[in-house]
Design a protein around this nucleic acid. Structure first.
Lengths: 207, 207
DNA sequence: CCCATTACTTTACGGGTGTTAACTTACACG
DNA sequence: CGTGTAAGTTAACACCCGTAAAGTAATGGG
C-alpha cells in the first residue's frame, strides 16, 4: 500500500481512526454518566487502549471534550437544517425550534457541554480563552439557522417581529431555558402545549 | 486549655455555629471556583477545621451542597418578594422577573446547583430521589412568587394571558434561558433591551 | 536488510478525593 | 472530683486522577 502522507502505522488502526474511536468513546461516557465521568483514563478504558495513548491525538482531557462538542454541534446543525420542506415559513421556524428542543432533550449532557460550559469557571470546558471563542463560534453556527428562519418569517409577514437578530435571540433564550429546565426538574408540573406556546409567543407568530 | 493551634474546641452550642460556617465556607468556594471546587476537604480547609469534622454536621459532600442550595433558594425567594411596592401589577411582575434575572446573573454558580443539578446524572446534586424532590420543592417556592405575580396581572387585566400556571411557566423558562445563556456565552452579541422584550412577550403584557 | 520513526505499551510519580477508625480534649453533670 | 459524652483531632485506607518517562513492536524508506 502506498503512503503518500505516511498515515498508515500501527496494528490498532489507521491513525485518524483511533482518534474517532476516542471521540465516540468519550461521547458514550458523556451520554451515560455526565461530564464528570469523562476522564482521560475512563475514555482510554472505554476505547480499550492505555491512557497515555490518548496523548498522540489530544493535548489533554479538555481537548477530548472539545472534540466531542464539535461533533455535537455538527449534529445539531444538521438536525436544524434537516427539518424537511415547509411551504409556510412559520411552519419551518416552528420545525426548527422543535428540532432544537428535541436535540437538547434527547442528549442533554452533550447539550450542556455545548452551551453550559462556562458556568463552572475552572473545571469544565473553555478554560482557555481561545477555546471559549471556538465554542462560541460553533454555537453561532447553530444560532444562525434559527436566525435565518426567523428572518424569513418576518420577511414573509408570518411574524410581526421587526428585528430578526433580537427576535431570534429571544427565541433562542426561550428554547434554551425550556429545554434545560425541563430536563433539570422533571418533577415540575409542566403544562401541556407549553412548547408551542413559548415558540409562538417569542417568534411573534400568527399575530 | 486551648489547642496550640488556637481554635477553641468543643464548646457546647458552638455546634450549630460551625454548621453555618461550613455552609458559608462551601458557598464561598462555590461562588469563587465553581461546583467542582467544593470538595469536602476544600471546605474543611476553607473553614479551618479537619475534614472528618464535617461529618458531625453533614452526612456527605452532597449534603453540604444541598444546604448551600437551601440557603440560595431562601435568598432568591427573599429577593423576589422584596421588589418594593408597585401600583401596577405589570410593573410588579416585571420587577420580579428582573429580580430573578439579577439573582441568577449575580451568582451563577449557586443558580446552577439550584436549577441545573440534574444534568450531570451521577455526580452533582440530586443523586438521591428524595433530594431531587426536596430541591424541586424549594424551586417551586420561588416559582410560586412568579406565578402569583402573573396571576395578579391577568386578574387586573394587565396581561392578556388566560392560564396563570402555563403563562408563568413559559415566563420562567424564558427567564431561566436568558440568565443561563447570557452567563454561559458572554461573547454572543446580545441585543440591548432583550430582557424587557422577553419578559413582556412571555408575560403577554401591555396587550 | 537495517534502522529511524511511529504508535502504542507498561511503569511510575505526585497529587487529589471521600470516608473510616482511633485518639484527644473540653465541658456538663452526678 | 471523677467520669461519660460530644466535638473535635490526626492517621490511614482505598481509590481515582493527569501526565511524564521509558520500553517495545511494527512499519516503511534508504
Amino acid at each position: 500500500m502506498t503512503t503518500s502522507k505516511g498515515r498508515v502505522r500501527n496494528k490498532r488502526g489507521e491513525g485518524a481512526q483511533l482518534r474517532d474511536e476516542i471521540v465516540s468513546g468519550a461521547t458514550r461516557l458523556l451520554v451515560q454518566g455526565g461530564e464528570h465521568s469523562v476522564t482521560l483514563r475512563a475514555v482510554a478504558r472505554e476505547v480499550g487502549i492505555s491512557a497515555p495513548a490518548i496523548y498522540q491525538h489530544f493535548a489533554d482531557r479538555d481537548a477530548i471534550l472539545f472534540a466531542v462538542a464539535e461533533v455535537a454541534f455538527a449534529e445539531l446543525e444538521h438536525a436544524l437544517n434537516d427539518v424537511g420542506d415547509h411551504a409556510d415559513p412559520a411552519d419551518r421556524l416552528r420545525a426548527v425550534a422543535v428540532a432544537y428542543l428535541t436535540f437538547a432533550k434527547h442528549s442533554p449532557t452533550r447539550y450542556q457541554i455545548m452551551f453550559g460550559g462556562v458556568w463552572d469557571a475552572s473545571k469544565s470546558l473553555q478554560r482557555t480563552p481561545s477555546m471559549a471563542a471556538d465554542l462560541a463560534e460553533l454555537g453561532l453556527g447553530a444560532f444562525r439557522i434559527i436566525s435565518r428562519a426567523m428572518a424569513d418569517c418576518i420577511e414573509a409577514g408570518c411574524s410581526t417581529g421587526t428585528d430578526p437578530h433580537a427576535d431570534a435571540t429571544a427565541l433562542w433564550a426561550g428554547l434554551h431555558g425550556l429545554a434545560q429546565l425541563q430536563v433539570a426538574t422533571p418533577l415540575f408540573p409542566w403544562p401541556s402545549g407549553l412548547q408551542s406556546t413559548l415558540i409562538d409567543r417569542l417568534a411573534l407568530l400568527r399575530g
